[in-house]
Design a binder for these strands. Structure first.
Length: 727
DNA sequence: GCCTCTGGATTTTTT
DNA sequence: ATCCAGAGGC
């Protein structure tokens, strides 16, 4: 078969048009399941194999490493050679590579370390302390977000201050300035720096930019709707010469505005590149017609959007199931039983299922329930592996070896394992370094070399010297040892195992250290310093979805955000409630509310065959059980798409048992008290006497709303609360 | 300096 | 419910 036929085989006309589009800017607006990844990969194959473009001159940017990996794998099947020569990666990974290579032009030492969110918070707290600011008043998280915003908009502290409109902004600008100074001293970059510094590098060094511009003849960007201003600028810079910029995105799936993703980038694109060819991919191959129409109806309610006309040739499929359960335990049980039911009927296998939720906290009940049911599952995220204490400790040692200036890592491990350097000594140590205007490590080194006398007790001074000596020793060996041996040496010298084994969950923690060692083994073959660099970069720039393997026989538990770009035959979206989806935090902001809707849309469109929208009538939030309202998004689903005739519009808030869309989850302990009715007078052990205001039947219990004399209105479960009827 | 206890706050989403 | 910071005891 002819190569071109092979590349175009199975593509629809719009996809073909995108793949074969001539040079010049290209904007592809692609609905969910319309084959956008396919289009990008096939276009790359087309460029290389038909148009004869040197693969070294193509850059493809993805949102996650996983997407990059998948793209690479698909390309290997399509072109079998030269795939390694392509530049494929996330914005962060690509920028990091650029900065390692050329960052020296703006004063960045190529041994820089990358600070993750946790490191960033630690550093921010130190900055707050130094500025005598109260971390309660100025939450590190809020400051981190302000700084992140500044960087995403390419503002330095001064520019940020100029644009500031509040007292908080002023404080934030001051913190930002100090924070940035500390980063620089530590030879460290945070995630946002990677992007911002790359842009600055290009701005200040046209010759460097020119090198990249000339090299990259073609630039392809996935998930374009989630790019922010820096990323947009970066694309503009690198693609500026040849202007063969191909961006693919779906405005309806833009869910990262809190990371300063800006939908206007899509509009800007058409303005900045008026000659851009716009291609719409509207045929969807993923979901059943019912699911696709449900999704369309949900997203249609957004005001700020361009209408589009998604269609599919797929079968109508099963109706969407909306299910209300009593509480989150029952919600989880419903999911578990439904999984069991479909599996036992042979309709699906474990790997086909995904349970999606708005907040990570929701995963817990599901996980516990699955454990009890013996349903194997994999939790995307959980306590993230690379954020675990023991893992970060070892990483901190290795980072410090690579880059002695890394202040955050140094302070992290200076007393781990315990060396008797407590808070007091640590504070004195850093204050002293500051007064000498030396980096922390520099001070340590001089201390060890007896070049200065320290304002510490002899004991503390001795311990610091020993620590310095150990680090020096490790650093000295780092050039001759491969990464794994270095890893082992760090663990051995620090006696880290014994330290962990002293803890109650030491075994488990030690297992994590060994798991990390396995990651290190992947870089064993690299030349010593390169292995360390590659390893450290890898462990910082990974995301949780990256480790998600396909074909594992387990149910996937995942947040709606993480689920973007994935698909599953059977999807459960749990917590379809006001306050969760949409989340409370978006209630007062229409733009945010539209984003919540898009998030819901993303979730719904992940499903190929079956979709369940589940909610709990009661949910435990911050310790207290509260009564929920069905998500407003449910009201937009047409009746005929649902599993039963139940209509949320009519029954909003209603908890009549007959309204269950799916089979009623039945639990034991059903205690109905038909003898009790509104108006009855009752007595409760704690609240005293009151009047029954309402009675509601739930799936397995009865709930009474009682107005107590002097205790206000309470909702009580008849199975738990001992209510006595007062005659 | 370190460990333990208590009270208080705290939960959106993440490269 | 759980995590964290600060206080107080060893």
């Amino acid at each position: 078969m002819d190569i071109l036929d092979k590349i175009l085989a199975g593509l629809n006309p719009a996809q073909k048009e995108a793949v074969e589009a001539p040079d010049g800017p290209l904007l592809i607006l692609a609905g969910p399941g319309s084959g956008k990844t396919r289009v990008i990969t096939h276009r790359i194959a087309y460029l290389v194999r038909i148009r004869g473009v040197n693969p070294q001159r193509i850059m493809a940017v993805t949102f996650t490493n996983k997407a990059a990996r998948e793209m690479t794998e698909r390309l290997e099947r399509l072109m079998s050679y030269a795939v390694k020569e392509l530049t494929i990666g996330t914005f962060h990974a690509i920028c990091s590579r650029i900065l390692r290579r050329d960052g020296s032009a703006i004063g960045i030492d190529n041994r820089f370390v990358i600070y993750d969110g946790d490191d960033q918070t630690r550093l921010l707290k130190r900055c707050l302390q130094e500025l005598n600011l109260d971390p309660k008043q100025y939450a590190p998280a809020a400051l981190a977000s302000a700084i992140s915003s500044a960087k995403a908009h390419l503002l330095d502290p001064r520019q940020y201050l100029e644009r500031g409109r509040s007292y908080f902004d002023e404080i934030a600008a001051r913190v930002y300035e100090l924070y940035q100074q500390r980063l620089r001293e530590s030879n460290a970059l945070d995630f946002d720096d990677l992007l911002m510094m790359a842009v600055l590098l290009f701005r200040r060094n046209p010759d460097v930019l020119e090198r990249y511009q000339s090299r990259y003849l073609h630039l392809l960007v996935d998930e374009f709707q989630d790019t922010n201003l820096v990323q947009y600028e970066l694309i503009r810079q690198i693609g500026g010469k040849h202007r063969n910029i191909c961006v693919v995105g779906d405005p309806d799936q833009s869910i990262y505005s809190w990371r300063f993703a800006d939908l206007r980038n899509i509009l800007s694109f058409e303005k900045d590149y008026p000659d851009a060819r716009v291609i719409l991919l509207e045929q969807s191959y993923r979901s059943t017609r019912t699911i696709l129409e449900t999704a369309s109806r949900i997203i249609m309610a957004n005001q700020q959007r361009k209408p589009k006309n998604l269609w599919t040739e797929n079968e109508v499929g099963e109706p969407v199931s909306t299910v209300e359960t009593y509480n989150e335990q029952e919600e989880a049980q419903f999911v578990a039983r439904e999984v069991e039911r479909l599996v036992s009927r042979g309709e699906a296998s474990l790997g086909d299922f995904a349970v999606m939720y708005r907040t990570n906290a929701q995963s817990r009940v599901i996980e516990e329930t699955f454990l009890r049911h013996g349903i194997s599952h994999r939790l995307v995220a959980g306590t993230r592996f690379y954020e675990r204490r023991e893992v970060k400790d070892i990483i901190a040692y290795l980072r410090l070896i690579q880059n002695p200036n890394d202040g955050v890592s140094l302070m992290r491990i200076i007393n781990i394992p315990q060396r008797g350097i407590g808070d007091q000594s640590q504070a004195r140590f850093s204050a002293w370094a500051k007064s000498l205007d030396l980096s922390l490590y520099e001070v340590l080194k001089q201390l060890a070399g007896k070049e200065m006398k320290a304002p510490f007790t002899p004991h503390v001074a001795g311990v610091l010297c020993a620590f310095a000596g150990m680090m020096e020793g490790l650093a000295a060996r780092s050039n001759e040892l491969n990464l794994v041996d270095l890893f082992d040496l760090v663990v051995e010298r620090t006696n880290y195992r014994a330290y962990l084994m002293n803890m109650p969950d030491g075994e488990e923690r030690w297992d994590n250290v060994m798991e990390l060692r396995k990651v290190a083994e992947q870089h064993r073959d690299l030349y010593p310093p390169d292995g360390l660099t590659a390893f450290l970069e890898g462990v910082t720039l990974v995301s949780d979805v990256d480790s998600l393997e396909e074909g594992v026989p387990a149910v996937t538990l995942i947040t709606l955000h993480q689920a973007k770009g994935l698909e599953f035959p059977v999807v459960f979206i749990v917590g379809m409630e006001e306050g969760l989806l949409p989340h409370f935090r978006s209630f007062d902001d229409p733009a945010q509310m539209e984003e919540e809707r898009r998030l819901c849309y993303v979730g719904v469109t992940r499903a190929k065959k079956r979709l369940y929208l589940v909610r709990a009538f009661r949910r435990n939030l911050m310790g207290r059980s509260i009564v929920t309202e069905p998500s407003r998004f449910l009201a937009d689903i047409p009746r005929d798409k649902l599993a039963t005739g139940s209509s949320w519009q009519e029954e909003r808030g209603g908890v009549d048992a007959s309204q269950y869309a799916w089979e009623k989850p039945s639990l034991s302990a059903a205690v109905a008290r038909p003898d009790l009715k509104a108006g009855d007078r009752v007595r409760h052990a704690q609240f005293g006497e009151g009047v029954v205001v309402g009675i509601k039947a739930t799936s397995n219990d009865t709930e009474a709303t009682v107005a107590f004399d002097g205790h206000g209105v309470k909702k009580l479960l008849m199975s738990f609360a001992r209510l006595e009827k007062v005659v």
